[in-house]
């Protein structure tokens, strides 16, 4: 039985549609990145290096975080906090926790640190390596 043309071409058209969908997503991602990048460029372009960012983050960490999370991020601070070593959470998630706090567990630092300072804190928290297995 002869198949209708649409049936014969369907797998090829399906592949084309799939690739088009991925391409569309990629274009959207680029657009969103450009928009978000514009916001980032509005910040003074002092070309802060990663090492500077980490050093800044360490200063903020010592001021606001170490008394709960411990100097080394092991959660052994005076007031008891979470172990921050080897966090699996994304940078955005960590920044969100710092900015908005965690209900009943951690205060919000929205008023204390601006987004660049939070980013520096995240960079420093990322330097805590995972605890060795016992």
């Amino acid at each position: 039985m002869k198949r209708p043309p649409s049936s014969a071409l369907a797998p090829a058209l399906a592949l084309a549609a799939a690739l088009t969908a991925l391409g569309g997503a990629w274009v959207l991602a680029c657009g969103v990145k450009a928009l978000a990048g514009g916001a980032a460029q509005a910040v003074p372009s002092s070309a802060v290096s990663e090492a500077d960012r980490v050093a800044r983050g360490q200063r903020f960490y010592t001021q606001s975080c170490a008394h709960c999370h411990g100097e080394t991020g092991d959660g052994q601070g005076e007031d008891g906090g979470a172990d921050l070593r080897g966090l699996a959470a994304s940078n955005a998630r960590i920044a969100n926790a710092i900015t908005r706090g965690i209900k009943g567990e951690m205060p919000t630092f929205r008023k204390r640190y601006d987004p660049q300072e939070v980013s520096a804190l995240v960079a420093y928290v990322r330097t805590f390596t995972a605890a060795a297995a016992p």
Binding site: S6, S7, L9, A10, A17, A18
Partner: peptide, 23 residues
């Protein structure tokens, strides 16, 4: 996410184009 997104779109197009005419 990315392979499944592409696959769902592709499969939907395949299914819509062929309707009930699939062997």
């Amino acid at each position: 996410v990315w392979p499944s997104f592409a696959a769902i779109v592709g499969l939907a197009v395949w299914r819509v184009l062929t309707g009930e005419k699939m062997s």
